[in-house]
Amino acid sequence: MEFLVSATNGSIRGSRWLLLHSVFVFAFLYLPIAVLIVYSFNGAGVGGFPPRNLTLDWYRTLFSDGAIWESVGNSLIVAAVAVVIALGLGIPAALALDRAQFPGKTLFRRLVLLPLILPGIITGLSLLMLFNEASIKLSLLTIVLGHGTALISVATTEVFAGLQKLDRAQEEASLDLGANYWQTFLRVTLPNLRLSIIGAALLIFTLSMDEIAVSFFLIGRDNTLPLEIWGRLRRGITPEINAISTIIFVFSLVAIVLWYRLRRSAEGSPEVAAELIETAVQGAES
């Protein structure tokens, strides 16, 4: 009854085509991921059909590969600091956009959001020129600054959306009951933005872990995981990349499931990413 509920007689055939199309799109979306996972267990290495000699060798190689794990560590550090920077500036930025008027506000909003949609190469290169002019040596620190700056946009968008849904009377009630601005922020504003902030943190962390276009130009001696993978891909196809990708994929799946659990336990639509893209293109209206 629920399925195909809005289909009248004439459109049932149409909906069959749509169904077929959707199956095709899903196949297209999942094909590379399936290949990745299957060939991470393939004894004969990457490529070659059919896969043969099921093995865990690539995982074994992976676990004894010091360089990869070092880059994973670097990426985790970078992502964690990027989350702190992006939230630390994105939350006030969203508050400012929501409730302060200042000259250049429109320009400020557009600048903050621009890295969301700008190809990473432009963000990366412009920062490279900054660090070059300021004679700052490239290192993990420059990558962190790059990620943090680019991802303020995510924190701002998410928190701003959360603020739009927040009933202003909540904060007024708090002030009315004698809590000052700081107490009100800690006890009422933040708890109400909890979901937006956790969502933003997860997204920022994931995007940073996967980021390569900006890091590409800001890299010093220490590699992040995507750059380490990139280096190996340039040298040729190596099956342990499949193994690490599979592991990351599984971790991501767990993160998604947790996130949706959380999101569903509170109410709200899971349209975080859609919101982001729309804001990126349209600019958040305040």
């Binding site: 590379p32 991921i33 290949v35 990745l36 994931t206 872990m209 996967d210 390569i212 995507p226 993978i229 990139w230 891909l233 196809i237 990349i241 990708s245 990351i248 994929f249 991501s252 799946l253 993160a255 998604i256 990413a273």
Partner: peptide, 11 residues
Amino acid sequence: LWVSYLVRAYA
């Protein structure tokens, strides 16, 4: 979307 861009390109 949660699978690395790089890894999907490589796949």
